[in-house]
């Protein structure tokens, strides 16, 4: 079984995010690049499924991004992925959800997979739309928000998390799966994993390897980013002067009631 996990290389979520006013894009230089945290959950799911499947099951991590960031993939290899594939081409810059998913799908067709696991959301773009678009371009079933998954007899059985409970869904392989954060905490990369990761291959694909029949990048994107602004700075809190604790409790209660919170 070949499991492919898509990961995105994003600016460290713990760093302060800045927006370039000219390009209206997130500033990605001068901050550390890390694996998108949601994708680490997807990778954890893939590694668990690989361990359970045993035999010749493999995990490939796949990313689309600038080649300069390819060493960031070593962490995924150190955690236990067997190999990495990166689609890197300057012409991909500025791709929207549709163009991104289209280009990724063409590369993933080339890579091949039985099970494609995708994190539910990226920390930078946060559209949450790539998994669905990818499944559409690949023509495979899409099962989202999995807390558990099992592959038996060439079929995939998934427990999906919903607001009201859990659904059990079954589908054929190949398929696309997105993971919920309840699937399992991502493991630490062991020292052995770190030392072994440098020997694992990272293959680079460019657009000329794919033969696309539609444009990608800014030209191939139907949606355009019009404006990008940081969240408004939270205003000063409201201060209420009261005579004693009882009056204070009443004031807090009245405030919560006014906001319909009690």
């Amino acid at each position: 079984m070949k499991i492919v996990v898509t990961v995105k290389l994003v600016p460290d979520p713990n760093s302060e995010k800045k927006i370039d006013p000219n390009t209206k894009r997130l500033v990605r230089t001068g901050v550390e690049t890390v694996l998108n945290p949601y994708d680490e959950y997807a990778l954890e799911a893939a590694l668990q499924l690989k361990e359970r499947a045993g035999g010749d099951a493999t995990v490939t991590v796949f990313t689309m991004g600038p080649e300069a960031l390819k060493e960031t993939l070593r962490k995924a290899l150190a955690m236990g992925a067997d190999e990495a594939v990166m689609l890197a081409d300057a012409a991909l810059e500025g791709s929207d959800v549709s163009a991104t998913s289209y280009a990724m799908a063409q590369a993933l067709k080339k890579t091949g997979f039985d099970l494609l696991i995708v994190g539910g959301l990226t920390d930078d773009g946060s559209t949450g739309a790539v998994p669905g678009a990818l499944a559409e371009y690949l023509g495979v079933p899409c099962i989202t928000n999995a807390r558990k998954a099992e592959v038996t007899g060439g079929a995939l059985q998934v427990e999906r998390e919903t607001d009201s409970g859990y659904q059990t869904v079954r589908g054929p392989l190949p398929a696309l799966l997105t993971t919920a954060l309840t699937f399992g905490e991502p493991r630490y990369a062991s020292l052995k994993g770190i030392m072994g990761a440098k020997k694992k291959p990272i293959a680079i694909l460019t657009l000329s390897d794919l033969g696309l029949d539609r444009p990608v990048g800014t030209d191939g994107s139907k949606t355009q980013l019009v404006n990008f602004a940081p969240p408004p700075v939270r205003g000063k809190g409201k201060t209420i002067e009261v005579a004693d604790a009882t009056a204070g409790a009443h004031a807090i209660f009245d405030f919560l009631k006014e906001k319909k919170l009690v």
Partner: peptide, 15 residues
């Protein structure tokens, strides 16, 4: 080296 950075970052996360 990338390896030294990875080991430090693993140790920091774990700690």
């Amino acid at each position: 080296t990338d390896e030294q950075k990875a080991i430090q970052s693993l140790a920091r996360d774990f700690a």
